[in-house]
């Protein structure tokens, strides 16, 4: 059965780059959101298995999304994909429940390693 992934980034190019970096053998249905509010709305509709979440976004940033997800009882795997490479940012998102941090620009191989570690991709 296909996994549903939600790609959250305000940049269309960044979403495209992330989607192209997903393992080719992974059977996925891709949904997209352009800011944190849209991401939460999409998440609440259900079925999201993995969320790829940018941090720096208008309306509602990635940290706020993680806080909201945590408060609602996190029910999907969140991989943060961000250019904010401060060690403190990486520690924070993990404390907020993200399973991994992948820095931008995304390296497809590293992303594959992260996903396989959690058994969510081939």
């Amino acid at each position: 059965m296909a996994s549903t992934v939600l790609v959250v980034d305000d940049s269309a190019m960044a979403r495209k780059m992330l989607i192209r970096s997903l393992p080719a053998a992974w059977d996925v249905e891709v949904r997209q959101a352009t800011n944190g509010l849209e991401a939460l709305a999409a998440y609440r509709q259900g079925d999201v298995d993995v969320m790829f979440l940018d941090l720096t976004m208008p309306e509602m940033d990635g940290f706020q999304v993680l806080e909201a997800l945590k408060a609602e009882g996190l029910n999907c795997l969140v991989v943060v994909v961000s250019a904010d490479i401060q060690p403190e940012a990486q520690e924070r998102v993990k404390r907020l429940g993200a399973i991994a941090f992948v820095k931008k620009p995304v390296d497809a191989e590293k992303l594959g390693v992260v996903l396989r570690e959690y058994g969510v991709a081939l």
């Binding site: 940049s11 190019m13 960044a14 720096t56 250019a83 904010d84 401060q86 931008k104 620009p105």
Partner: peptide
Amino acid sequence: ALQELTNIGMGQAGA
């Protein structure tokens, strides 16, 4: 694209 590429440079500068 320019905004996203700047965002990546900004992330490095921030760190």
